[in-house]
Design a protein around this nucleic acid. Structure first.
Length: 471
RNA sequence: GGUCCCUUCGUCUAUCGGUUAGGACGGCAGCCUCUCACGCUGCAAAGGCGGGUUCGACUCCCGCAGGGAUCACCA
């Protein structure tokens, strides 16, 4: 079999949402795994809603996710002339006809059908009427003359064999009265001209697939292999909407997720390879196949994404993670400010602190927060919040630390932890109990990396070893 | 309403007629431990309902219920 050609065809009316991202991932993985190509086509025929900003956001989203495409992105709008050409060809072949119904008439027709609880379909008024009946001064649309008998079958890789009775499919408009093509025509023409062999898209296109199949047949073109992927739902099972995770992928970037983790998570949503949960992108590409896509919709689960992301953070090397962190900062809240404070020396500190930091961060945002102790001005005041989090024993220890520290000068305290030990003994506490308040004094946080990590990163090796001995 | 699709632990899923129905996230309990994590151990947790087919159904068929998608001169 020759190498497959897939395509991702988003409409640039908004950001790249999570469902689209997964569709792109599937197209990409299939193409990569079968020695094929993934093309990118921007479906921008709706000039009212399409924006360049949305197109840019989609391309950037794909790039961030690590999904590349072959050749340049194709603008569907730029191919309108060809679409109209095919519409006329269909007309000549007798597979299409002019319809002079006005939008008002059509609306009335729908309302009437709805009132009578009958299927909402075009009634075929102009299907067989001669052109001589055409009313003057009305620009007609071109409708596809779809077969009225028999059935249209879609052999879907994910959905199986889906059969539509042709009588249920009405004559759709393929060319508007202003001469512009409509979606179902454009898609067929473009997929054919771009030599797409495998169409992988959301199930919301399943009925379109039937109508498109009819157009392929009318044109005598071979119908591509089709796969309709179930949609992603929100946590409550309802259709994904904002706040559910129907956010653009850039939102996931801002939330501190790693592209690799998101790829892994998305792949696992609706597709499976036995019991494998965590796998590399290489494995995904190697394993991915269309029949392994499930049929039922999956709910988006942030808890699992977080867990997976934490796993990826932990298993990423310190240097690599630092790079990812630095790349993430421009998109993070207060990230620019932090970035401005990062020079070579700070990078060294971050790198040194990374092992202790990455183990307890599930996202880059958490990494950002927990690394803040490297940036604070010292000595820092012990805030009440940090104190309140200590237990009674800790509070007693804190007093000792504070006394020995003279409240703020932690460097002095570290240098004199021998005195600390004496004070602790007097108070009947183990020196170990001083670790927490000491950390609070050094980091301003009640929970943070182990005190050893903190001391080491801050360059207090001698104190580190002495305290370690005491603990 | 018409058409099409779906239905295994709370969630993502494995199973392709015979399993103590497996894994992962989350939850709970414990271990580890200077806090928080990580890690480790264990526990609880599922085949929507009703009929068939079969020696035997989560698995095949029918019905019901529930959920979803779609029905534009949007894509």
């Amino acid at each position: 079999m020759s190498s497959p050609v897939t395509r991702f065809a988003p409409s640039p009316t908004g950001y790249l949402h999570i469902g689209g991202a997964r569709t792109a991932l599937f197209n990409w993985a299939y193409a990569k795994g079968h020695g094929g190509k993934m093309l990118l086509r921007i479906e921008d025929t709706d000039r009212e809603r399409s924006t360049d900003a949305a197109t840019a956001a989609i391309l950037e989203g794909l790039t961030w996710l690590g999904l590349d495409w072959d050749g340049d992105a194709v603008s569907q709008h730029g191919r309108m002339a060809r679409h109209a050409e095919v519409a006329n060809e269909l007309l000549v072949k007798g597979h299409a006809y002019h319809c002079y119904c006005s939008p008002e008439e059509l609306t009335a027709m729908r309302e009437k059908a709805e009132a009578e609880k009958r299927p909402l379909r075009y009634d075929g008024t102009w299907r067989d009427r001669p052109a001589s009946d055409a009313p003057p001064n009305i620009k007609p649309v071109i409708r596809f003359k779809s077969p009225q008998e028999g059935e249209t079958v879609i052999n879907d890789q994910a959905q199986g064999r889906v059969v539509f009775a042709n009588k249920d499919l009405d004559d759709l408009i393929i060319l508007r009265s202003d001469g512009n093509p409509t979606y179902n025509l454009s898609v067929v023409v473009d997929d054919h001209d771009m030599e797409v062999t495998h169409i992988i898209r959301g199930v919301d296109h399943l009925t379109n697939a039937a109508r498109q199949t009819q157009i392929y047949i009318a044109m005598g073109w071979t119908v591509p292999n089709m796969t309709h992927v179930p949609l992603i739902h929100g946590q409550d099972g309802a259709k994904l909407s904002k706040r559910h995770g129907a956010l653009g992928v850039e939102a996931y970037r801002a939330m501190g997720y790693l592209p690799a983790a998101l790829r892994n998570y998305l792949a696992r949503l609706g597709w499976s390879h036995g019991d494998d949960e965590i796998f590399s992108t290489e494995e995904l590409v190697r394993w991915f196949d269309l029949p392994d896509i499930g049929k039922s919709p999956a709910r988006f689960d942030f808890a699992k994404l977080e867990n997976l992301n934490g796993h990826y953070m932990r298993s990423t090397s310190d240097g690599e993670l630092l790079d990812q962190f630095l790349a993430f900062l421009p998109y993070a809240e207060n990230g620019a400010l932090m970035l401005s404070k990062i020079d070579g020396a700070m990078k060294d500190k971050l790198l040194k602190a990374m092992p202790g930091l990455k183990d307890r961060a599930k996202t880059l945002v958490e990494l950002q927060n927990s690394s803040s102790y490297l940036f604070v001005e010292r000595p820092l005041p012990l805030d009440h919040k940090a104190k309140a989090l200590l237990n009674d024993e800790g509070k007693a220890a804190l007093k000792i630390v504070a006394g020995a520290l003279d409240i703020c000068d932690e460097w002095t305290a570290i240098a004199t932890e021998g005195a600390l030990k004496g004070a602790a003994d007097t108070a009947g506490l183990k020196l170990g109990k001083l670790a927490q308040p000491l950390r609070a004094a050094l980091t301003g946080m009640s929970t943070s990396p182990p005190i050893f990590d903190v001391l080491e990163v801050l360059g207090r090796q001698e104190s580190l070893s002495r305290i370690r001995d005491q603990l």
